[in-house]
Simulated assay, not measured.
Amino acid sequence: MTEKQEKILAAALSLFAEEGYRSTSTSKVAKRAEVSEGLIFRHFGNKDGLLEAIIQLGEEQAKLLFADIIMTTEPKEVIRKFIEIITKTSQNKEAIAFWKLQFKIKWELEIYGKHKTEAVEQALVKAFSELRYLQPEKEANLLLTLMDGIATRFILQENFDLDETIEFLKQKYKV
């Protein structure tokens, strides 16, 4: 990706997060990125193409976040690493801003990229199966849903006690 493409994506991320996808025009993105609007069309086709590039970037970031979890073989470590993933991400302001946008897009456009979490869900199902949980698929789905809710609360709720919540989950699952 060129430096200008990165500037365009960064500007779009910022504006979509501030104003929403529907309220942001490509001309605003171009102005913020200090490029011509034509350059946006050349690289991304249109505003939808720009959004698709941002969503794709989110999918790539999710794969990077989940890679270590998926490669882990010890079941309790799989669960622990998944529970701690938000703590790891919360220490990086740029990552928080990036994921905040991903959540905002999900709600504004009513899209949910379930495929982003399929590999980690399979790893969790396997871990819960090996630990002899009665319904490993439902347990994995519950943990994914809890973590989605925890991430939302962390992003939106001022003074949310992330550490206490993560510690509670680790105690609940004995990891």
Rank of each mutant, 00 (worst) to 15 (best):
I40P: 00
F168V: 14
A119I: 08
E77S: 13
D68C: 03
T165H: 05
L65A: 07
F98T: 06
G45H: 06
T87E: 12
V125W: 07
E77P: 06
A33G: 04
E84N: 07
L169N: 06
F168S: 10
R32I: 07
E118S: 11
K174M: 12
A95M: 04
K47M: 09
F41R: 06
I85K: 09
I111C: 14
P75V: 13
T26G: 00
I83Q: 00
E37A: 13
M71R: 12
G49N: 14
L101D: 03
G58T: 01
A95G: 02
R132L: 10
E108M: 05
I40G: 02
F82A: 11
L57N: 08
L9W: 03
I54M: 07
Q5D: 09
S14H: 04
A97G: 05
A30Q: 03
K81Q: 06
L144Q: 01
F128Y: 08
L64F: 09
E19S: 14
T73V: 09
G149K: 02
E19A: 10
L57W: 03
M147G: 04
L15T: 04
K106N: 11
G113T: 13
M147A: 09
L143E: 00
R132Q: 15
A67V: 11
L13T: 06
V29A: 01
Q56L: 09
E6L: 14
K116F: 09
T26N: 01
A95V: 07
V29L: 01
A12W: 00
E60R: 15
S27Q: 14
A30F: 00
S25W: 04
N141M: 13
K138H: 02
T117P: 04
E3L: 15
E164N: 07
Q61I: 05
E118V: 07
W99S: 01
A33H: 00
G38Q: 12
L9I: 12
I150M: 06
K4Y: 04
L142N: 13
I55R: 08
H43K: 12
D148V: 10
E167W: 00
K93F: 06
D161F: 05
V35K: 01
R32D: 07
F44R: 03
E158M: 12
K126T: 15
E37I: 06
V35A: 02
E118R: 10
K114E: 10
I79M: 01
K63E: 10
E164D: 11
